[in-house]
Amino acid sequence: MKPAIRAILIWAVLGGAIAVPMAVAMTSPLLAWRDPIYIGAGVAGVVALALILVQPLLAGGYLPGLPLRRGRHVHRWTGSLLVAAVVAHVAGLWLTSPPDVIDALLFTSPTPFSAWGVVAMWALFAAALLAGLRWPLRIRPRFWRLGHSALVAVVVLGSVAHAMLVEGTMGTASKAVLCVLALMATAKALIDLRAWVLVRRLRS
């Protein structure tokens, strides 16, 4: 396949995988019975799930036009965006129904998906914190690689379980496709980068 066609295909699949569930969520009948803050909280959750698919693609340098070095650069920015999206998601839900969010954060919620979401959230914060402190604290490459990889694996698994169990605004089919792609992209990136190898051998 010609590189140009391949590039267009990859971007088109990624765009579709994100745009379709987003469109379904934005046209959900449930929105008619939600106030703007609750709607915003839901959208922030969908954006976060979309970014969870984008992150491993950037980290692995799989996106045409964004090879490893440039991909990693964008990965840091989208990572910050992902943290912001999750904060907006939780904050919006908190404003909508404080006791439900407190239950979730304390792991006393009646809904099983809450715990998955909260575990994924803390793992995400830890992964981002590790990335932010990597250079200031001169964290050793072997610890950084293993730590960040293990944490993001928890983020992806927790988020997928969270999203699939929620009866929300996203369509089941488009949500499932987005989740499967996120799992596949994460697995490919971790395998390709040999995330479990303690010494960093990759030069980009």
Binding site: S97, P99, D100, D103, T108, P110
Partner: peptide, 8 residues
């Protein structure tokens, strides 16, 4: 009492 029953 159920979990989350008293919320709101």
């Amino acid at each position: 009492t159920m979990r989350g029953g008293s919320n709101n």
